[in-house]
């Protein structure tokens, strides 16, 4: 019973702190509200016996939100990260779509006749996950790894100040090159 109450309260906390992300006055507060939502969901995942995934979720998202907070303070003009602001568009339409989506999903959840549980969890679910990743499910990690490498390359390409595409054009055929100084300064 206490498990169920704790699980429900964490869920409520996750929803409310998620809503607070778009309700509080500053982006810094929004970031920490999102971190709180992720921690609550991570704890819920722990309640569901997913020890490894729950801990990874909490650690990863706390770090990500710390990076995001620094990022916003770093990039946003006039430092609105720490000041009241409201920057929304199509607010009523977005609200309507979100409410309709929730009602549709909730109706599906309540109306579907869910099957009963098949099988029982392994005695050590973390070890079972490791065995699966290194065995029968290795293809998943084999596919995910190059996607992550591609993300690193794409991220660096996008975030770089000047690249060969700035100098030689999108098809690399522009001659002479577009340099800030003749001879290629500012590469």
């Amino acid at each position: 019973m206490s498990m169920a109450v704790g699980f429900g309260l964490l869920g409520l906390l996750a929803v409310l702190s998620g809503a607070a992300v778009f309700w509080v006055n500053s982006m810094a507060r929004a970031t920490y509200a999102l971190a709180l939502s992720f921690v609550a969901v991570g704890l819920q995942v722990l309640f569901l016996q997913q020890n490894y995934v729950g801990v990874v979720t909490i650690l990863m998202m706390v770090m990500e939100m710390a990076i995001m907070a620094v990022y916003m303070v770093m990039f946003m003009g006039m430092n609105p990260a720490l000041m009241p602001m409201s920057m929304v568009h199509s607010n009523k339409a977005a609200l309507g779509i979100a409410v309709a989506t929730f009602l549709a999903l909730a109706a599906g959840v309540l109306l579907i006749d869910w099957p009963t549980r098949r099988g029982t969890p392994a005695p050590d679910v973390t070890a079972a996950l490791g065995d699966a990743l290194m065995g029968s499910k290795m293809l998943v990690m084999v596919v995910t790894s190059p996607v992550m490498v591609a993300t690193i390359v794409a991220g660096i390409s996008l975030a770089q100040h000047r690249t060969r595409y700035d100098r030689f054009g999108d098809d690399l055929t522009q001659r002479p090159s577009h340099d800030t100084q003749p001879g290629g300064g500012g590469r």
């Binding site: 429900g8 929803v15 946003m76 568009h89 607010n91 929730f102 309540l110």
Partner: peptide
């Protein structure tokens, strides 16, 4: 209960992704 809570979080996120103007807030 788990799925309804997940649906509520999803709907809140959907609202933010549609309504926010700042890129970082859309990411949130």
């Amino acid at each position: 209960l788990t799925l309804i809570l997940a649906a509520a979080i999803f709907a809140v996120g959907l609202y933010g992704a549609i309504s926010q103007q700042v890129v970082v807030m859309v990411m949130m």
